[in-house]
Write a protein that binds this DNA or RNA. Structure first.
Length: 836
RNA sequence: GAGACUGUGGUGGAAUCGGUAGACACAGCAGACUUAAAAUCUGCCGCCAUGUGCGUGAGGGUUCGAGUCCCUCCAGUCUCACCA
C-alpha cells in the first residue's frame, strides 16, 4: 500500500525548504499562470480545489517545460462577511479575516499546490490598500474618479447602499427590509470613458471563450443612433431623445420621459407627483421590471414634431423609460416597435406606418427590410439609406446629431462599510474636496453595535485637518467596492513588496497573465473591471499592455446531488446512508429523497469538505480525481465512488515501482514486441503533450493510465530494464503536474535503485521521438456502401492498387456478383466499395 | 421576450479534416487466489439478438460515407431582460 501521508508531508516539506516554487532564474522564458484569488471565508471548498488543481497542473507543466513560471496566491480579504462575523461572533473583522487566511493557507499547502508563497499578500494588508489609494488618487487626478448624485438601493435597516445583486424581491438580502430608492452623492469610476476600447479590444482576446466575449459585448451594449431635439409647446425647454431608428421619426406619435427626467421638475400637478412616487416604489427586481405593466401619464405638455410643422405629439411620463440610459427620453413609433405599440394601445395613441414590405401587413412591423413610406424625402429608401439621410438632414438643420450610446454605466464604488479600502479624500469647508495624505489607515477601535457605517460613527477618525489650509476637515467615510482590490492584484504579484503600486520593469517581465483560470460567474464584472484598470494604468504609465489576461479558462462548477428529509429540509451527504436504491438518515433513520445535481452550496448542504478527502485519501488522490473524468470547462459531478478508483490507481503506480525495483534484468534482450510497446509509449506521449497544450486534463489522465498498462505489459514481456526505465520516465514526467507527491517519491526511490532522474532537481521534459510515431503496418477499414465490413493490415508502403485488391478479396463473398460501381480510397484509412 | 450553449451506454466522458462510435474511468456481472474476507488479478459489459440487424434527443437533407455539415422540431442549462 502506498503510504500517502508520509510521502505527501515529506515532499511538501522538501518543496518548501528548497524554495522549489520561487522564481530562481529571471533570464528564462517567463510564464504567468494565475487562478482567481479566494475570499477567505473560513476554509476551502471543492470549487477552490478544482480551480487550483487545474492551475497547479498547468503551472507545473510549464515549469517542467523550462519556463520560469510565476504562480502566486493571495487573498481577496475585504468584504461584508467579515463584518457579519464581527456582529455575530464579536470578533474584529481583521482578526477573523487573518485567522481564516491562516487556516486556508494551511489547507492549500496540504494540497501540494506549487505557489510561490513569498509573494503572498491579502488585499486588507495596509501596504496593499494604501497603494490602492494611490491608484484611486491617480484616477481622481485624471478625472476617472468623480462624485455624482445617483439613485441607489438603500437598506434602511443596515443604513447602507446595496448592490443590485444584494436586492432580492425588493428586499435587502440580509435584513429583509424593503429597499428604498435613494439619491445619494457617491464616488464613481468613469469606466465609460473606455467603453469603445473595452469593446474593440475583445477582438484581441483570441484565447478567451466565445461565451465570455459575447457576454462582455452585450454588457457594454453599443448602440449607434442619433440624438433628436424636440421643442416643447408652451415652454422654453427642449427634450432630447436618443434613438437607434431616427428614420422612423415621421411615424412618431408620442415622446416618453423617465420619471426622473429633469423636465419633471417644472411639473407641479399633484397627480404627477403621485405617479412618480408610485413608479419609485415599483422598481427594484429585474424580473419585476420585465413583467411590469406599462404605465404612463400625460405631462400636460406637447412636443413639436421637428420635421412636420404644426404637428404636436404628447409628452408622457412613463415607468418603463430608464433615466440612466441614453437621455432618459425617447420618441415612440408604435408601428415599428413592440413596446411603443403596446403603449400606444394603452393610451389610444395613433399608429403611423412608415416602413412597407410586401406581404407584411401586420403591425408592429419590425425588421431591417422594406422601404420607407409616408416619410416625405425618405420615401422609397431602404432603412439603411434613410438612417443616413435623416441624420444628415437633422445635423444640417440643427435638430439633432449622430450619437453612440452604451449600456455600460459608470462604476459606482462607494460603500458605507468599515471593512474595505477607505476612499482617500477629505472635505474642507474652505478648500473643498482634497486628496488625503496616504495611506489612510482603517482605525482598529470600531464598534458594530449599531447599524450603519462604523467609520461614520467613530468618535475621532473622521475629523482631520485639511492638507492645504490646515483648517478643520472631515474624511470621506465610505470605502471602496471590493471589486477594486481584485482589479489590479495580478499586477501586484509581480512586485509584492515594492513601495509603488506597480513597478513597471518587474511587471513588464511577467505580465500580462498567460493563463487565467476562474469561475464563469466573473465573466462580466471582475474581468471587465480588471480590463479597465489595465487600460487606465497603462495610460497612467504603470504598465505597457492593453489587456491583462491572454488566455482565459472558465472552469465549471462542482456539483453534487441534494438530499432532503420528509419535511423538505436539506441534509448533508455525510448524514445519508444508502441501502440499495433507497436512502435514509444515518441517525434518525428517516427516509431521504434524492434531489437533482446542483452546484455545491452551503444553503443546500450538498457539500463535501475537501479536508475530509485530503485526510482520507491524500492530496494526490483528490487532485487526480477532480481532474480525471471531466474536462476543466464543464461542470463536475462529485461522487465518492470515483475517488476510490483514483486511490486504487495510485496504489497501482506504487506497485509498479516496486516491481521495477525487484525486476530481474538477467538475460533479457529487446524484441520486436518490446519495440512496439515503446512505440505505443511515444504515441501516447505525443497525444499527452497535445492535450496539455489544450488544457484537456481529463484526457491527459486517461492517456497516462493507458501508458501505465503499456509499461505493465513491458514488464510482463520481460523487456530490457533500460527500456522500462525510459518508459517510466515518460509516465512520471507527464503525471507529475497532476500528482506531484507520489511521482517525486517514485522517482526518488527508483533513482536509488537505478539511475533514473526525470524532474528533480533539474526538470527535463520528456519529448517523444517523431521517428517512433511512424508505423510499418497500417490498418485499412473496408466498407461496402459506407458500411463497415472488415479490416485489413497492410505494409505502410503498400500502393493503392494492392491495398484495394486485398480489401476486395476480403469482402468478395459478401458482395457476391454485384457490380462495383465506384471505389473510394482514403490513404491510410479506408477503402469503400459502392455496389448496386 | 431576446440570444448563446448542450443533448453519445446504467453513469462521467472519448471519437484530429466528414472515414472502425463508446478510448479512459465509475458502477455492475462472472471467475481466479484465500479457511474466509479485504486487496489484487483475469474475463464480460450499447440494444435486439446471432445478422447483409438496430443504435449518438426526434424528423428530414447533403454525401460513397454524418455523432461531426445544413434545415425543422423537442428537451435542458446559462446569460441578458422594457437599452429606445
Amino acid at each position: 500500500m502506498y503510504p500517502f501521508r508520509a510521502v505527501e508531508s515529506k515532499w511538501q516539506k522538501r518543496f518548501e525548504e528548497n524554495k522549489s516554487h520561487q522564481i530562481a532564474d529571471f533570464s528564462k522564458n517567463p510564464c504567468y499562470i494565475l487562478e482567481m484569488l479566494p475570499y477567505p471565508s473560513g476554509k476551502i471548498h471543492m470549487g477552490h480545489v478544482r480551480n487550483y488543481s487545474i492551475g497547479d497542473a498547468m503551472a507545473r507543466f510549464y515549469r517542467a517545460k523550462g519556463y520560469s513560471v510565476l504562480h502566486p496566491m493571495g487573498w481577496d480579504a475585504f468584504g461584508l462577511p467579515a463584518e457579519n462575523a464581527a456582529m455575530e461572533q464579536k470578533k474584529h473583522p481583521k482578526t477573523w479575516t487573518y485567522s481564516n487566511i491562516e487556516t486556508m493557507r494551511t489547507q492549500l499547502k496540504a494540497l501540494g499546490l506549487s505557489y510561490d508563497w513569498s509573494r503572498e499578500f491579502a488585499t486588507c494588508d495596509e501596504l496593499y490598500y494604501g497603494l490602492e489609494q494611490k491608484i484611486f488618487l491617480d484616477f481622481y487626478d485624471k478625472g476617472l474618479a468623480y462624485r455624482k448624485e445617483s439613485w441607489v438601493n438603500f437598506d434602511p435597516v443596515e443604513q447602507s447602499v446595496l448592490a443590485n445583486e444584494q436586492v432580492i424581491n425588493g428586499r435587502g438580502w440580509r435584513s429583509g427590509a424593503l429597499v428604498e430608492r435613494k439619491k445619494l452623492t457617491q464616488w464613481s469610476i468613469k469606466i465609460t470613458a473606455y467603453a469603445e476600447e473595452l469593446l474593440n479590444d475583445l477582438k484581441k482576446l483570441t484565447k478567451w471563450p466565445d461565451k465570455v466575449l459575447k457576454m462582455q459585448e452585450n454588457w457594454i451594449g453599443k448602440s449607434v443612433g442619433a440624438h433628436i431635439h424636440f421643442n416643447i409647446d408652451g415652454s422654453d425647454d427642449m427634450i432630447t431623445v436618443f434613438t437607434t431608428k431616427p428614420h422612423t421619426l415621421f411615424g412618431a406619435s408620442f415622446v416618453a420621459i423617465a420619471p426622473h427626467h429633469p423636465f419633471i421638475k417644472q411639473l407641479t400637478d399633484p397627480k404627477i407627483k403621485d405617479f412618480i412616487g408610485e413608479c419609485d416604489r415599483m422598481i427594484t427586481t429585474e424580473e419585476a421590471m420585465a413583467t411590469m405593466e406599462k404605465k404612463g401619464m400625460w405631462s400636460g405638455y406637447d412636443a413639436q414634431h421637428p420635421l412636420i410643422p404644426g404637428k404636436k405629439i404628447p409628452i408622457y411620463i412613463a415607468n418603463f423609460v430608464l433615466s440612466d440610459y441614453g437621455t432618459g427620453a425617447l420618441f415612440g413609433c408604435p408601428a415599428h416597435d413592440t413596446r411603443d405599440f403596446e403603449f400606444a394601445h394603452l393610451y389610444n395613441l395613433p399608429v403611423h406606418r412608415v416602413i412597407d414590405e410586401v406581404d407584411q401587413e401586420n403591425l408592429p412591423f419590425i425588421s431591417n427590410g422594406g422601404h420607407m413610406i409616408n416619410s416625405d424625402f425618405l420615401n422609397g429608401m431602404s432603412q439603411e439609406q434613410a438612417f443616413e439621410a435623416i441624420i444628415n438632414y437633422l445635423e444640417e438643420k440643427g435638430f439633432g446629431s449622430r450619437h453612440v450610446t452604451y449600456r455600460l454605466r459608470d462604476w459606482l464604488v462607494s460603500r458605507q462599510r468599515y471593512w474595505g479600502c477607505p476612499i482617500p479624500i477629505i472635505y474642507c469647508d474652505q478648500c473643498g474636496t482634497q486628496k488625503a495624505p496616504l495611506p489612510v489607515v482603517l482605525p482598529q477601535d470600531v464598534s458594530f453595535d449599531r447599524p450603519g457605517n462604523p467609520l461614520d460613527h467613530h468618535p475621532t477618525w473622521k475629523y482631520t485637518t485639511c492638507s492645504t489650509c490646515q483648517g478643520p476637515a472631515i474624511r470621506e467615510t465610505d470605502t471602496l467596492d471590493t471589486f477594486f482590490e481584485s482589479s489590479w492584484y495580478f499586477l501586484r504579484y509581480c512586485c509584492p513588496q515594492d513601495s509603488v503600486p506597480v513597478d513597471s520593469p518587474k511587471c513588464d517581465h511577467f505580465a500580462p497573465v498567460d493563463l487565467y483560470i476562474g469561475g464563469i460567474e466573473h465573466a462580466v464584472l471582475h474581468l471587465l473591471y480588471a480590463r479597465f484598470f489595465t487600460k487606465a494604468l497603462r495610460d497612467l504609465g504603470y504598465v505597457h499592455m492593453d489587456e491583462p489576461f491572454q488566455e482565459l479558462l472558465t472552469q465549471g462548477m462542482v456539483c453534487h446531488v441534494t438530499y432532503q428529509d420528509s419535511k423538505g429540509k436539506w441534509v448533508y451527504p455525510t448524514d445519508v446512508k444508502k441501502d440499495g436504491d433507497s436512502y435514509s438518515h444515518i441517525t434518525t433513520g428517516e427516509k431521504i429523497t434524492l434531489g437533482r445535481l446542483e452546484k455545491m452550496s452551503k444553503s443546500k448542504k450538498n457539500v463535501v469538505d475537501p479536508q475530509d478527502i485530503i485526510d482520507h485519501y491524500g492530496a494526490d488522490c483528490a487532485r487526480l480525481f477532480i481532474l480525471s473524468d471531466t474536462p476543466p470547462d464543464k461542470d463536475f459531478d462529485w461522487n465518492d465512488d470515483g475517488l476510490d478508483g483514483c486511490g486504487r490507481y495510485l496504489n497501482r503506480l506504487y506497485r509498479l515501482m516496486e516491481s521495477i525495483k525487484s525486476y530481474n534484468n538477467e538475460g533479457t534482450s529487446e524484441t520486436i514486441s518490446h519495440k512496439n510497446l515503446l512505440k505505443k509509449v511515444h504515441k501516447l506521449a505525443k497525444n499527452i503533450n497535445d492535450e496539455y497544450e489544450k488544457i484537456v486534463l481529463n484526457k491527459v489522465v486517461a492517456l497516462c493510465r493507458e501508458m501505465t498498462y503499456v509499461i505493465e505489459d513491458a514488464i510482463d514481456q520481460k523487456a530490457p530494464l533500460p527500456m522500462i526505465m525510459n518508459m517510466v520516465q515518460f509516465l512520471l514526467c507527464y503525471l507529475q503536474p497532476i500528482i506531484p507527491h507520489i511521482t517525486h517519491e517514485i522517482e526518488e526511490q527508483l533513482a536509488v535503485a537505478n539511475t533514473l532522474k526525470v524532474f528533480s532537481p533539474n526538470c527535463v521534459w520528456m519529448m517523444y521521438d517523431p521517428e517512433l510515431l511512424k508505423d510499418d503496418q497500417v490498418t485499412y477499414v473496408i466498407q461496402v456502401n459506407g458500411k463497415l465490413k472488415g479490416q485489413v493490415c497492410v505494409p505502410a508502403d503498400a500502393v493503392e492498387y494492392d491495398i484495394k485488391n486485398q480489401c476486395l478479396e476480403h469482402i468478395r463473398h459478401t458482395i457476391k456478383d454485384a457490380t462495383i460501381q465506384k471505389e473510394i480510397f482514403v490513404k491510410g484509412r479506408l477503402v469503400n466499395f459502392v455496389v448496386n
